[in-house]
Design a protein around this nucleic acid. Structure first.
Lengths: 213, 213
DNA sequence: GGCGAATTTTGTGTATACATAAGCTCCCGT
DNA sequence: ACGGGAGCTTATGTATACACAAAATTCGCC
């Protein structure tokens, strides 16, 4: 693997996992020494992060980790609703029903696995990612898919803020199953509505578990 | 201005103006010599272009200028409709009516200026850009605005393909005026509808003037 | 003692030299 | 004659050295 890729992945992980807090300045020499790569690949890594919006160039004095405030979360979900609703509707029109029927069944079984087991949680996240990937593939629109990929980076960052409380996860699994069902049935309006419901519940949950900060 | 900025701007211009055709491989040494900068800033420029989607990394063998086919245009407008409709609706909810009333008036006067004069065309493009900027500012959503900026790069590239035929420009000015009016009147649904109409007409025009390629 | 300017320091911007990997070509073997 | 492998070539990946600009600190002057 290239050195620039390693630096990029490491920094991205550090930012998403909140080990590098918003406002932290990433000096080139400092980070290149920490990650054991030279400045050149590190600069490329920082460029990519800045393009993604995880960092912002702080005129002349390094780049800083981008902040995510509560207003940002509102804006983020506003765009997310716009894109994911459209994506769900398109997937319902163009997707293969069999794929989403299978996902629906698996998602309906997920809550049972979630009750106590730690492994079930990872399993559920995997299923949610599978659903996302299936929608991406079904929409057949590279530009829309790219826009959604760009969004998900920030969303993962927000998710790490919210508590992984089991009752919410069970409800989320049911909502995901509803989305999969709507897509499988080829009903764009329903798929869009189910997505809207899911996103609003998610946003409410995040804001409820993290009010002050 | 930094050398990397100059290289970026030059390459971006060359790609948008179709002087660098899709499929052209941009070798680092070749381009760095052509633009009179070293490889290091040129690499950063290529990174930015690739992040924007104007070029794609061709595994190991330089980067190539991204192709835009007719299917791509359909996908592009699908995303564009999604984003711009939402933006127009939000602008109608949150924007300052006075700003859009002024833009509406100026846009209604544009067709008269467009008839023969060359300067009028540039004037109209300026007004359209002003409307875009006003919407961007009115929505108050940095993520949505960023997504739209990312799209506009590709759209400009498509626009250069289509002929600047006067009758279409006059119609487009009227459609823009309708959008401005809807936003000024604070009617989100109407703003969204006006945007949908405008985009569909634009797409139809582009596909009509450029069927075979 | 405080304020301002100059200097030092630190960090980014750029260039170049070196390493490495991927392609291509040519030659050898089958 | 065709296929495969080895060597060469070329272009990218990486490291480092140098230049320049900005910021902080310190020294001098008021």
């Amino acid at each position: 693997m290239r050195a620039s890729d390693r630096a990029y992945s490491a920094l991205r992980e550090d930012i998403i996992e909140w080990r590098l807090r918003p406002g932290t300045v990433l000096a080139e020499v400092e980070q290149s020494e920490r990650l054991g790569v030279s400045r050149t690949p590190l600069r490329e890594a920082l460029s990519r992060l800045t393009a993604e919006g995880l960092t912002t160039a702080a005129g002349g004095r390094g780049v800083v980790v981008t902040d995510i405030s509560l207003e940002d979360i509102d804006e983020l979900f506003e765009l997310r609703e716009t894109l994911e609703c459209k994506a769900a509707a398109l997937a319902a029109e163009r997707g293969d029903p069999a794929v989403f029927e299978r996902l629906q069944k698996e998602l309906l079984e997920a809550p049972a696995l979630l009750t106590d087991h730690e492994a079930g949680l990872h399993n559920y996240y995997g299923l949610a990612a599978e659903l996302d990937a299936a929608i991406d593939a079904a929409i057949g629109n590279a530009y829309l898919a790219q826009a959604m990929r760009g969004l998900r980076v920030h969303l993962v960052r927000v998710r790490r803020l919210a508590a992984d409380d089991p009752s919410r996860l069970q409800a989320a699994a049911a909502e995901h199953a509803a989305i999969a069902e709507a897509i499988a049935s080829g009903n764009p309006a329903l798929a869009q509505a189910a997505t809207t419901v899911h996103l609003h519940r998610s946003l409410t949950h995040v804001k409820a578990t993290h009010p002050p900060h």
